[in-house]
Write a protein that binds this DNA or RNA. Structure first.
Lengths: 260, 260
DNA sequence: GCGGCATGTGCGAATTACGCAACACTGAAG
DNA sequence: CTTCAGTGTTGCGTAATTCGCACATGCCGC
């Protein structure tokens, strides 16, 4: 048996990382960090100063504000990106999915309670959806998120649904745990998930899971478009396309039973 | 007067970030981190565990190894990238520079004693240079780096030259501080920098600085190619092209005296 | 010039993180 | 199979680290 997981977190490191993430949303000053974390200004200053010494932040000489150092983050991202070169691997599939559907195609992975968009090809139409790369959306109300959730074992899904905050974004957002659980059951049965204006009014999304060579679900692929083009009638047709391309991408990654 | 800069670094945060960066070069285990940092295994474990709790690392259930969480870093990068969307802004200029020169075009920014490649377009020729995105090279022996260095005030440059480690990579690398200082003077006068096989034998690079709306140098743009194509005779011609495109990119960013 | 308000810095107190030691488990060697 | 060496993980006492207070300093508006 593996030892139980401990919960002794290193306080300074935890606070420092939180401060770092605050700085990423724009510039921060010691006093802001201090207030947000409930600590003394001097402590916040030392954290920020250490982050700067390590190259993660820069300090404006005049305003004394701390801002993120884009170059550092690019460097960090460059290192991890080579390990999982999604944009390159998935690029062709995204383009195909966009061209076949006419809508914005996107690819996302799970990060805690969110799905993060890591690659996309925007639709050509005048009115087309545009999610920024790197942005995140809640799992429970996005098609990509639901595709990822439904792929898990039942027990894990149930536990998550019970404990996750199911915030409502539109009137159609599913906020009832029992409803969501049943909904995810049909997602699994269908092989694709639909976000029917649950995040943004007027926007419908369809997504399917991506499996790797060990049959693990590692990402989700989908399309997003206005309800005027992705209509209820054409939805099955779009879903077919999404599942087809998703299966091909899975196959490219070495997934075993991906029938083409 | 501004207060003097303090040097009280928060130890745990500093160690934690170092551990994080170790994990980015592949998976790490507590014992490795402990040995590298000269600390106890338990301490290293707590740092890694905290990093995992904050989403920066993942732990393999079987091997117990800690690996970076690409999604997290993508998210972080996404936030800073929107502030300075280099790939999008510079993409067109890079493509033009590549097409006009026939060589790999690249864009880099400074990060401590290195230049980091944040965007590029690889040349079409069978033999063409390929730097990975996010990788770094020393300032003193790369064209981009020298273009960035030469753009600073004289005093700053002199101080840096005197204290920086001028490691030799080829026989042509300039390792003598006084020589480098004079060399950077000519770079500034010329408006472009040349890396004449100072980093890699057989590779010549040419670069020029990019200015923002406040006339500050924020990046450098250049080309890299084999010495067989970027010959000494054609060098001025290539340099002209590089400076031209660099000036246009600067203008795009709002630089005032960028003469086109 | 004066008073709020910020950053940055000593310094003592005590919280926090560290190293030690031990346990559980794994894998390899005998 | 047994043993042994090595690793991940956790509890605990101690001591070093960090924290918050207080203050110096500079900045901006009134």
């Amino acid at each position: 048996m593996q030892p139980k997981r401990g919960q002794q977190l290193v306080q300074s490191l935890e606070r420092g990382l939180t401060a770092l993430e605050m700085a990423l949303d724009g510039s921060v000053r010691p006093s802001e960090v201090a207030e947000a974390l409930g600590i003394d200004r001097s402590t916040a200053y030392r954290l920020l100063y250490t982050l700067m010494a390590k190259g993660y932040l820069l300090q404006d000489e005049r305003t004394r504000e701390f801002t993120s150092n884009p170059a550092k983050f690019f460097q960090l991202y460059g290192k991890v990106a080579t390990l999982l070169d999604w944009p390159d691997v998935a690029g062709g599939f995204l383009t195909r999915l966009r061209d076949e559907s006419g809508e914005t195609a996107n690819l996302g992975v799970r990060q805690a309670n969110n799905v993060i968009y890591i690659a996309h090809k925007q639709g050509q139409a005048a009115l087309s959806v545009n999610f920024g790369l790197g942005t995140s959306r809640p799992l429970h109300c996005s098609a990509l998120g639901k595709a990822l959730l439904a792929a898990q074992p039942d027990a894990v899904t149930a536990e998550w649904v019970a404990s996750a905050p199911l915030t409502a974004y539109t009137t159609k957002t599913i906020t009832e745990p029992s409803l969501l659980k049943r909904h995810l059951g049909t997602v699994r049965a269908d092989g694709y998930a639909v976000d029917d204006e649950e995040t943004f009014a007027g926007v419908r999304c369809i997504a399917a899971p991506i499996h790797d060579h060990r049959q693990q679900v590692i990402a989700a692929l989908g399309i997003s478009g206005p309800t005027t083009r992705i209509t209820q009638e054409q939805l099955p047709h779009f879903a077919q396309t999404v599942m087809q391309v998703a299966a091909e991408l899975s196959a490219e990654l070495g997934a075993p039973n991906a029938d083409l």
